[in-house]
Design a protein around this nucleic acid. Structure first.
Lengths: 213, 213
DNA sequence: GTCTATAAAAGGATAGAC
DNA sequence: GTCTATCCTTTTATAGAC
């Protein structure tokens, strides 16, 4: 049964998200999956192999979809390249889809971005290197002239931060809403991200003019 | 010697930042500090107590400074309350100061924001509850009319995300710069954060108008 | 306050039967 | 593929001498 393998991955995903990658033992994962202790090593070789398996299962399709959308956006653009909004949308939308379908895993992706453990940092680079490079190039091209290098990298980094905290702490939105309204999700959440970040990215370097003298 | 206590806190701060709170044993911390294994329990009672000690030492002054600045900004404002920029500045500046003086600890704060372990989540609420509530109220008041509740909480959350990722992954900026320029820090970094986030917060709900028909 | 020594538990990993 | 049993290491925590 390859079903056992899936059961292990599912339990690992849930528990890693709930307690952090370093906060869960392999034994606990297998217990939750109702699977014998020896089978994690049988299927994944080691604890690290299990972690890689959990991450790869969903990150590879995520990256593929992001790159597919970016290719589309760039193909449809003129010689100056696409404007910033559709580029951001190609970056955000697949991640927000994942947040809707596999919220536990979305938390994991965010945690991987801020992880300290050297092995996880390395894995992060392996998994996201191409995507981050292609999108950061596309975003740079789409920004107005007059921004300095430091401003561009800062803003690109801030943009990433909005997504990462949304992936890790999406449930905080419901707390902040305190039942007074529905929290945005799916397409609406993508739209909020694009609006916020494109405004931030293209803002004039000096910021808003003061209210009035 | 209360110096021993400080040595333990310093080593814990450094190692927690380098490997994650769950990735370091108390023994490793004490070894790095050159301190006997038994002394962590003598001073802090337990592993959890040590974590609390590390966090409290710097978060309490950080919060106090943030609230002091917010009080100032609100006292100087008219009856409609202060505009969004100085409120953001009061929130960001003390954190960026901390990033300059104790970069390891800044990483820790960020990790605490996205932490999964229930004990850490609880501690996070204890430590930041008042500050987050006061600032989110001030920011809400400063936003233009016409934003819906979901839009307001989303944007406030995005704003927090820009800061958190800056605290946890500040060193990524240097990687992105690849030696071509100096990465912003201190006052300049605060200015970038304020510019990006105030533009995002006050953006019209529909986003930028498309380029031209 | 600082040390040694040790208890008690948990975790990763594997051997070998079925 | 799945199971039991076991090994080895690491870790938290504490007792008690100095």
């Amino acid at each position: 049964m390859t079903d056992t393998k899936t059961a292990i991955l599912d339990s690992a995903e849930r528990l890693f998200a709930a307690r952090g990658v370093d906060g869960v033992s392999v034994r606990a994962i297998l217990a939750e999956a109702g699977v014998n202790v020896a089978l994690a090593h049988y299927y994944f070789g080691s604890r690290d192999g299990l972690i890689r398996g959990v991450l790869r299962r969903r990150i590879e399709p995520l990256n593929a979809e992001r790159l597919r959308l970016l290719d589309e956006v760039e193909a449809a653009a003129g010689p100056d390249g696409p404007p910033v909004e559709p580029v951001l949308r190609a970056f955000f939308a697949p991640a927000i889809d994942l947040l809707g379908e596999h919220p536990d895993f979305a938390r994991l992706i965010g945690q991987l971005h801020v992880a300290s453990a050297p092995a996880l940092r390395q894995l992060f680079l392996e998994l996201f290197d191409v995507v981050l490079r292609r999108f950061s190039d596309a975003i740079k091209r789409s920004l107005p002239a007059g921004l300095s290098g430091p401003q561009i990298v800062s803003r690109a980094h801030f943009m990433l931060g909005t997504l990462i905290l949304t992936l890790t702490n999406y449930s905080d939105l419901a707390l902040m809403a305190r039942g007074r309204f529905e929290v945005p999700r799916g397409e609406m959440l993508v739209r909020e991200l694009v609006t916020f970040c494109s405004a931030g990215l293209v803002a004039p370097p000096e910021g808003r003019a003061p209210a009035s003298p």
